[in-house]
Design a protein around this nucleic acid. Sequence first.
DNA 1: ATCGCGCTCCTTTTT
DNA 2: GGAGCGCGAT
Length: 759
Amino acid sequence: MDSKELSDESIFSNLNDKQKEAVNYTEGPLLIIAGAGSGKTKALTHRIANLIHKGVKPWKILSLTFTNKAAGEMKDRIGKMIGSERAEQISAGTFHSIFAMILRREANAIGYTNNFTIYDSEDSLSLIRHIIKDNGIKFDEITPQGVRSKISWSKNQMISVADFAKSAVNDVTRTTAFIYGEYQKKLIQSNAMDFDDLLLNMIKLLNIPEILEKYQNRYEYILVDEYQDTNKAQYIIINRLAKLHHNICVVGDDAQSIYKWRGAEIRNILDFKNDYPDVKIVRLEQNYRSTKNIIGGADSLIKYNQSQIPKTLWTNNPEGSLIELFTYDSDFDESESIAKKISKLIKSNNYTLNDFAILYRTNAQSLSLEKSFKNNGLKYMILGGVSFYSRKEIKDILAYLRVLVNPKDTESLIRIINFPVRNIGNTTISHIQNFAFELNISLYEALKRVDEITAIKKNKATAVTNFVEFLEEYSSIVNSSNPLDDIVDYINATKIRNVYLEMTTDDAEDRLMNIDQLFVDIEQYFISNENATLEEYLQQSALITDSDKKDLKEDSVKLMTLHSAKGLEFPNVFIVGLEQGLFPLGFTNESPEELEEERRLLYVGITRAEKYLELSHCLRRFKFGDIIISKKSRFLSEINSKYINHNSKEENNVQFKKKSLFSDDYSQIKKKDNFYFDDIPEETKSTKQSTVNNTTNKIPIFLQIKVGDIVNHKLFGLGRVEQLNGIADNKQATVLFKSVGKKKLLIKYAGLEIMKGNF
DNA sequence: ATCGCGCTCCTTTTT
DNA sequence: GGAGCGCGAT
């Protein structure tokens, strides 16, 4: 249909020499060191197009990315080059989704059945909670979250339960090892895999020679994006798959490695040339995204990191405006001021809402921003954060669906067995669990045989039987290739919606809306994926977050963590909360390594900005319902000051003094010693002097001025702006002055003042 | 078995 | 400030 003609022209034009080199080098190992904004995705997509052009069959290509967002963009752009039909045939996706698909196909080989359930981190957490509770484990040092992250970390390092147990030195670690073991056992019994298992089981699968051979043959060309973020398990899989054909192309930037905490090994990219001595290395160092000032600022910051590949990121772009630095009184002022600034800019310039992004270190910081955006009537979109799929009402419904597909999924079964209430209480459940344990059968099997359990009275047994019969009634959905209508019936029959209809609490309405949204989601899935099964729907919903489905092009200000911002770019970027303890996060045990990772994270953030970058920090901030006094981030002093314009604190205090959260009575504030820093930030003193060369307004004038504005010039007097050219610092205004006629002025130097009204 | 109150922990960051 | 949990009251 839309099978596009490919030519050398369409593949190689508009590429710089380095990019061409990468695109042209199709055989053998290739390492692309790609700096931020250096056209990495472009090089990758053109390289794939070139492979196709050379006659490589699309299904012989495996392209692995880290996030769904990146995978989506890749597919999109490849589709535009080679036509969507051929693009569809490429195995392009995240590690997790591609491996889940393969595992689904080969499940039997490793003792799973292909209807296995994927547990997300919350499912894992609740499983761990159950294990801790069921075994009466009581250690202050053992928290479900702590155990989960230890297990996940171990899995990523490929430390087995046995290895973990061997290195256990005290009661706490021995108990943790025990939980790890139980957790693994329960997962297998439940025919379920957690996120990490999707990688580990993939390795298990590739241990089987015939299967290894099959996939080595299948994937003649392998591409891996964000290689610096791969962990040990991913590294092993990639290398095994590439072993036959050696056509492996990895792309990465050590300066943008921000997932060490999750097991990522920067070493993988640093050692690539040891793994493949015949490697070709291409460096993409020209940045096409940002102004010289932004690149300069980012570069001066990252220089503080000891361990890094030496490289020079450079740009031909204009110098641009300086990075603006603001000091605010409180996070409230910060949010309010940014919201006001953006709405002003949109009214007075040609900017649209989606030219702006606000980046923060922790999801919790979105709260005050959200409030301010609502106050100011600005449309915004939060990426990441509490996911739609992790809301209780949604998880409950998904649990009902999961149980149909995989009755062994005990966590889901327990979740719904008495919700909505059907008179099956904890006592009854534990009787059934004991029974299941003794006979070594699944909980679901035990439910079916509830009449055999003497400890359970007749009326309770009937309730259980009714529940099982209810599930069985809808079990045909599983094998249906057109299940939409039945799924809707089934969900309605669970009566979950009715529970919230009858509720009078505030959040009931939200929950109803979410449920309706889920209906829409399910409907859309089955309409756009003909012949899809429920199983497939569940698989994608486990691996895709709701923000992946959001349309980034929608006109709204984007709010997200710095981690989620990776791979994206925006004309105007605000990075907020640059305070010690928040960014860099954690104010006590800063290991140099962790600090370097935080620094790389800020580097990633800074390099998202195309034209205008604003950094800010607050003197006081709400945290856990308390006010904490904050020092400005050390990173702010690390960025070379020649790239920064520091705006004074006084000017930033939004005129909400009366409304301000902190204006009232300080004595009321509960003091938590460890939250207070003794020394008052030097900020207040030093900033007063540094503002002399700044205009009285906190928004740079070149951002405020728009065509039609009446302006005042010191010499020429009043005039009207007729035309604007250039960007940021280089923006020029053509002004028709009353006295001297038309003049072209560089706004930066013109000292124009925007007037209200006509002349 | 359910409800509601108060207590605790939470906060990294994501597939 | 909010979610989740345990415990005691009904």
